[in-house]
Structures are given as C-alpha cells and as structure tokens.
Design a protein around this nucleic acid. Structure first.
Length: 104
DNA sequence: AGCCTGACTCGGA
DNA sequence: CTCCGAGCCAGGC
C-alpha cells in the first residue's frame, strides 16, 4: 500500500456513479486535498484491483490522459468502458464535461 | 535535508 | 485549436 492518502482518493473515485465522470482535481478536492490532482493520477496508476472505477477519472479537458505506461491501446479500452456505461465521446475524442461530469 | 518525478491544471503566446 | 512554462505537493532515492 502506498499510503492512507491514496486510500482517500480511491474512496472518492468509488463515489462516482455509473455513467458519470470526474476530473483529477475534482477527486482530489472531494478527498480533502485540493492541490493533489497529480497524485490522484499516480494513485490510480498503482491500482491493480478493479474495485475502483478508475476509468471514470479524466482530466479537466474532458480527455483520457495518456499514461506513463508504454502499453498501447489502453486509452481506447478506457473509452470503451465508459461508452459501455453510456458516456458518449464527442467527435474530437473528448467527453462533454458539461453533460457527464459528476456533480455531488 | 535536497533533488527529481508525475494518469494535473491554468493562463498566456 | 496547440504548445509552453510555472505552480503545485507527496513520495521515493
């Protein structure tokens, strides 16, 4: 386990309802650490279990962030998982946050 | 302690 | 629209 901080982030991500997305900064804020957007990504990268809907976390641009991992096609998988939850992507490959962003 | 890194974000060019 | 730089802060060495 990395730290208790990451657990906070995971807990916040789990609150994202199906069919909705949230930004890194949003998750950080919900977890109680407003300036930790980068660590949210870092925490999600360390995830191996599927008990956290990490695919619902995107950046503030409404795009799927490129990971540090060289694995090709991973972003496409995240997109498929979202579309399966009825989250539609725009023609430019972005998610319209005004429609799909989770607002607690 | 210092230095480097990063699934980020924002504002400016 | 894209690219770049700066701010941000915990974690690992």
């Amino acid at each position: 386990m990395a730290s208790a901080l990451y657990e906070k982030f995971y807990a916040a991500v789990r609150r994202i309802p199906k069919g909705r997305v949230a930004t890194y900064g949003q998750i950080a804020k919900l977890a109680g650490y407003p300036r930790h957007a980068r660590h949210v990504g870092f925490a999600l990268n360390a995830l191996t279990k599927d008990d956290v809907p990490w695919h619902r976390v995107i950046n503030s641009q409404g795009r799927v962030s490129a990971r540090a991992e060289p694995l090709f096609g991973f972003e496409g998988r995240q997109r498929l998982m979202l579309e399966r939850e009825k989250v539609r992507f725009g023609p430019d490959g972005r998610v319209p946050l005004e429609k799909f962003q989770w607002k607690p």
